[in-house]
Amino acid sequence: MARKKETAARKTRAQTRKGRKTERVKRAGGAKKVRTSAAGVKTSTRTRKKGEATSAIGAKRPAGRKRAKGRQAGGEKPGWRDIPRGGLIVKAGNAETYETGSWRTKAPAIDFDRCTNCLFCWIWCPDGAIQVKDGKVVGIDLFHCKGCGICAHECPKEAIAMVDERRTTHVA
């Protein structure tokens, strides 16, 4: 009984949503959405398909559509029916897809002229947000960097400064 009622209620909700959804889709129109950080750095891209809800909260997903893979930004998270019960994480290693970068108020800016590639920042970073290539620091992963400032504090050459994000110049 309860389940039947729930389904019926869900259908009605979905119908009332439909009008709003179409309008939103029209506006979005399958356009490529580019998410940029406050620093103007491109962090992730995702194409919104036609008919796809812009918000997952309580939205009915089209059949066969797979859960958004990879990084999830705020506003694109699944609704309460689509997440494991009890706050459980049933897939290992999903910290990579969880954005902690939104917690940040200040971002590390690297002065590459001063950097000696000692990699102290890489060792100390609690989030593995220091990007290293061939033994050299190349940038900061802003999707995960919480802006804790440990890297700036530990850098022996004072090559990292915590600055207002609008003034950072590094490459993500």
Binding site: M1, A2, R3, E6, G74, K77, P78, G79, W80, I83, R85, G86, G87, L88, I89, V90, K91, A92
Partner: peptide
């Protein structure tokens, strides 16, 4: 099938988990 019980559940998921608990009580009725 490794899984995590009791991870940090902030403003972005906690509400959904509480909503699930309301739903569970509705199923409990039946």
């Amino acid at each position: 099938h490794p899984l995590t019980y009791g991870p940090l559940d902030l403003f972005d998921y906690y509400f959904e988990h509480k909503r699930q608990q309301v739903d569970a009580m509705e199923y409990a009725e039946k």
